[in-house]
Amino acid sequence: MQPTFCNFLVALLLCTTLLGSTVLHAAGSITLKTITPEELLQAMQAKNSAKRLLFFVGPRLLYTQAHIVGAELIGQGSTSEGIQNLRQRARNLRKDTPIVLYCGCCPWNHCPNVDPAYRALQELGFTRVKVLHLPNNFGTDWVDKGYPTARGE
């Protein structure tokens, strides 16, 4: 009777632990190479840092309101049109060009755009691609911090 009860408790504990870890690791983008807003800002401000390209792979309406200074509007990474634009833009670039992709349309673990864009560049052979890690959204994690922002297209 007692060992059965203990087994039940152990099973319950294992189940709850597993459930907990699934929730905590819900973000699907664990394989992406990322850069934090602070790291990107530092790199942008550093005089001797390598020139990198900034590609916005989110929706146009967000870009028009605000985007990182120097970022190019590519199109949504979740659409075939966006990926086509990205391939087109990357066509004449050296494969070792440093590229930072970003979106920030939704919380990080729900963003539909950065993952396919990152994969597309990897498939094309680009070796220095990073994704800007915006845990909440572009407004909260970049604009509200007062980091350099431009408007319009």
């Binding site: 309406l61 967000l62 909440n136």
Partner: peptide
Amino acid sequence: GTAQLAEQYGGVLGL
């Protein structure tokens, strides 16, 4: 929506 409307509402820079 439009960018102008979003800006009137303080910016919609995340959904």
